[in-house]
């Protein structure tokens, strides 16, 4: 029997496969459970023992997106026949729809703040990382350490000063405020990750472009940026995931106009009793943008991670 450095033995392959499958199950089951709960009726959602096979309903989604009020049979009779399928679902529970809920708005806020801060973070992070990688910056190592040190405590530890600062600057409960905050929190990690990626791009490419008649900025734009795409994409995913899921600052700093979805979803519990299907529906929809973003960039993400792993 011969051993090769590159080709794992069958036993190893099986073992590795088993590990991956087990890990996938552990991470995916809660997710699938949430998705399933979104389609359950309230009774099924709290049934014990839990039901795995159930009759799916869109009630959770209807409850998520609407505000409803309890109504007597007479009142429902008086309102006439239901006009839409969601009217019908609401009435079957003895309620009438009074209007849309604020989930849509909150979700849109999440999109604006999450993607806005990710974009800003990538612009600033790439520029800073390029400068650190290529130019002789005075006190470079100290600056890099200082930048990273901003992440050495949980950001929420400085929430009080930030809260006061935001209030004085009029940034409380604004999109701009939240975008700036998430950008600031993400920037240190972005600079470090992106610097690693840019360091890997040989300087000769830019030098060739400089000689070919391009300015430094054009060389950056035309030669470095396309090659850093992988690193930028994977860093962007990390930034988006943080900004998208952030809860504590969102609770503290937003209320009316700029509130994101994470603080809203648990609020649903309070409104009409424990409406778990609506909560699950909110969480399911909330997953979608990050999932789409990640799937679109997953080729880059995978390459980005392995790329980083083989660095000397």
């Amino acid at each position: 029997m011969s051993f090769s450095v590159t080709e794992p033995t069958n036993g190893t392959k099986w073992f590795a496969g088993l590990l991956v499958v087990a890990y996938a199950i552990i991470t995916l089951v809660p997710l699938l459970w949430i998705i399933a709960t979104g389609f359950k009726s309230p009774t099924d959602s709290i049934a014990y023992p839990p039901v795995v096979v159930f009759e799916p309903t869109l009630e959770g989604y209807v409850n998520l997106f609407t505000d409803r009020t309890r109504a007597t049979d007479d009142m429902i009779e008086a309102a006439g026949p239901p006009e839409t399928w969601y009217d019908e679902i609401a009435r079957s529970r003895g309620t009438v729809i009074t209007g849309p809920s604020r989930y849509g708005e909150r979700f849109l806020n999440s999109v604006i703040i999450g993607f806005g801060s990710t974009f800003l973070c990538m612009v600033l992070g790439t520029a800073a990382a390029y400068a650190f990688s290529r130019f002789r910056v005075p006190l470079k190592d100290d600056l890099l350490f200082f930048i990273l040190s901003t992440r050495m405590m949980p950001p929420i530890a400085v929430s009080i000063p930030i809260f006061l600062m935001f209030r004085n600057l009029g940034l409380n409960d604004t999109h701009l405020g939240m975008i700036l905050l998430y950008t600031a929190v993400n920037l240190s990690l972005s600079v470090w990750l992106l610097k690693g990626f840019i360091d890997e791009i040989p300087m000769e490419y830019e030098e060739a472009a400089l000689i070919d008649g391009y300015t430094r900025f054009q060389a950056f734009y035309k030669v470095v940026l396309p090659q850093a795409a992988t690193g930028i994409a994977s860093t962007a995913i990390f930034c988006l995931i943080f900004a998208w899921n952030e809860y504590a600052f969102a609770v503290l700093l937003t209320s009316g106009t700029a509130q994101t979805a994470p603080p809203f979803i648990p609020n649903i519990i309070g409104v009409n009793g424990k409406d778990w299907p609506a909560v699950a529906a909110g969480a399911t929809i909330f997953l979608v943008p990050v999932m789409v973003f990640t799937v679109l960039l997953r080729k880059h993400l995978l390459r980005g991670i392995t790329f980083g792993a083989v660095r000397k």
Binding site: E204, Y205, E207, A208
Partner: peptide, 13 residues
């Protein structure tokens, strides 16, 4: 000036 580098630096993208 035009230069050919020792490590041929073609733009890989």
């Amino acid at each position: 000036v035009a230069m050919v580098f020792q490590q041929y630096s073609l733009y890989p993208h």
